[in-house]
Design a binder for these strands. Structure first.
Lengths: 204, 204, 204, 204
DNA sequence: TATGAATGAGGGTTCATTCAT
DNA sequence: GATGAATGAACCCTCATTCAT
């Protein structure tokens, strides 16, 4: 089937990534064998290896869209500069939730496996550090604006609060994946109430 | 009548678990082979298998004390009923941090691997659900008290806020293990400020 | 009526063989994959397989010109019927050396790989047996002439001496390929001294 | 079957090496899979890998006794200092032949595969260079003695003649392995006649 | 009893070869 | 006709686990 279009190649690649994501979400990276992905994709081992140099490559390729999705979501959530940090986090959660559970793949499970993988695999850890670092930066900036708008004390530390707000997202992902009993909308609504406007505050 | 005392057996078992924890914190569950644990423990494969039926058993045994430690810490942190939920979480963080990084094992790494393992191993997931469920209950109770003390609106949902407060702990663990740049004391201090007492007192 | 001329086909074929020889000399037959040859030739897998039914075929095709070169060289070296067998071998060595190391391919390396391949591949073994058998025959004939000229005892066994003289060539090839420290000209000069004319001998 | 004696371990190791030698002599190193050796040994893959770290290790272990045997043989053949170099080579051939074809393994086939392997594998090449280098040294020394005894011209170059005499051995091995038609005793007898004593004695 | 040699299924990966395009 | 994507058997090696000693 040679001399196929570049589009066909991209489609095939995505097909394999999708199959891998199903496997990874089901069993995690380590407990998923390349054979499993091969079976799930309906292709052959050789075909998979012609698109990805190694299992690690496949893992990285599977992780990438997930983190990209998160980055994109946070960029959008942060656009409304007047919103409180809690509102931003709430919006972020609402925004990622459909992405996260859409279709047959629960991306929160992918994320949790990726965290564990990041403990050992420097490449995965690098992706995580870069991406999550950027998400926290956005949230910190948000906190800084909120402080500058007079809703937070002047000595507020945006960096730590960014970490704390990021934890709200991380905790949602972990609880959704592992405990499975978090209602996304109630959770997001609660997050929205964090760091509310100062009562007599500046935002009026 | 056993040749060796029950105490001796328990010591041996703990010795193996300790060796396993060192390996697991270093490499994660999957990348740690039973052989690694055998080597680390200085015992023989047969010895390890006489204390644990399988690797999964060993994993579960290693996970248990970690989550038990958390449970214990939350029980203590929650004792002061007058404290705000944020203060409870802050105290919880301060309390678990020494446990968490004490000695040669970083328990936040164990926790992250355990989460991933819980995605597929029902035993590990069971432990996680039970323990983390109880931690969240304590936090929810704390929220309920705080609400009943007039610091939160009457329609406050303690369950969701418990999940959110739990996220603050989860997020700390994950960021410490994977990103490695969270200052535990600043983070705990920031957490303390969550859900502050209502200014004039009750929710009027 | 073919689309491309037979000559064009032959050129293509030689092009592939040349590429294969470069790979084989570098890595040996087994460690060279068909893919390597495809890459080296700049053609496609299909193209290579349209000229050679299998990798074994390609190996045989690559071996053939090498041994043919040897056969040709011995035919020339043997022309001077008055020369001693040692002189013939010396001339043979001088003659094959430029062929052997000329260009980018060290044919002694090909030869050594081919010997090993001949242990299991009947086609290669056949080529080796036929060609080397003929080389030995020539050398044996040479010995017989030398004996008949009175330089060797009448009970001299030309066959065994042919094997022995052939060994001088084989040993040169092996030492050049594997040990890499034989000076071809000194070696050839030494070979020339083998089986010298009888002192008061018949050839005067 | 643990806690076995060191002797048992050595026996097992030798058993595996013997099985490997049978496979290697039959098919060469590359065409022999570890599976083949496992099958031939009657053990399991894991067992083989508990004695040898890798296939390369097994190859090295199989090559070692062969080259050791050659070294030992040359040391013995060289003992009689009054013998001509040809006699030494003849004796060397007679001495290695039984070793070489004894039992079910034709070691000349192992040697030829090892040569080919040495082209790529530096470890094997190292063994070859060291061993064959020493064999050639012995033969060169022999030539030097012979020259000093007056049987060769004073300007004789022992090094090159050592290479040439070594070729007689190499050529025998190659012809025996690949062409299979060399009579060892006739060949050795012919080798004995090389570099005969000067007729009237010394070179006066 | 405690040992650690042995097992063999399964791990990730590469290969010669084919055939739809 | 030439291409190169696809195949799937086989590659080397590691693993959790067992059981003869």
């Amino acid at each position: 089937m040679p001399r196929v279009s570049a589009e066909h190649l991209a489609v095939r690649r995505d097909h394999i990534v999708a199959a891998a994501l199903r496997c990874f979400a089901r069993d995690g990276f380590h407990a998923t064998s390349v054979r499993d992905v091969v079976r799930e994709s309906g292709l052959s081992a050789g075909a998979v290896y012609s698109y990805f140099r190694s299992k690690d490559d496949l893992v990285a390729a599977a992780v990438e869209p997930v983190v990209e999705g998160l980055l994109h979501a946070v960029d959008e959530a942060v656009l409304d500069r007047g919103a409180s940090p809690g509102e931003v986090v709430g919006r972020l959660l609402e925004r990622i939730y459909p992405l996260v559970v859409e279709g047959d793949v629960d991306y929160t499970r992918i994320a949790v496996t990726a965290w564990a993988e990041g403990l050992r695999d420097p490449a995965v850890r690098g992706i995580a550090q870069r991406t999550y670092g950027r998400v926290r930066e956005r949230l910190s900036e948000c906190v800084a604006h909120w402080r500058d708008a007079g809703h937070l004390p002047n000595d507020t530390d945006p960096e730590v609060l960014g970490q704390l707000l990021f934890s709200v997202v991380v905790g949602f992902v972990m609880q959704h994946a592992l405990l499975g009993d978090v209602d996304p909308h109630r959770y997001a609504a609660a997050a929205t109430l964090l760091l509310p406007p100062a009562h007599g505050g500046a935002d009026r």
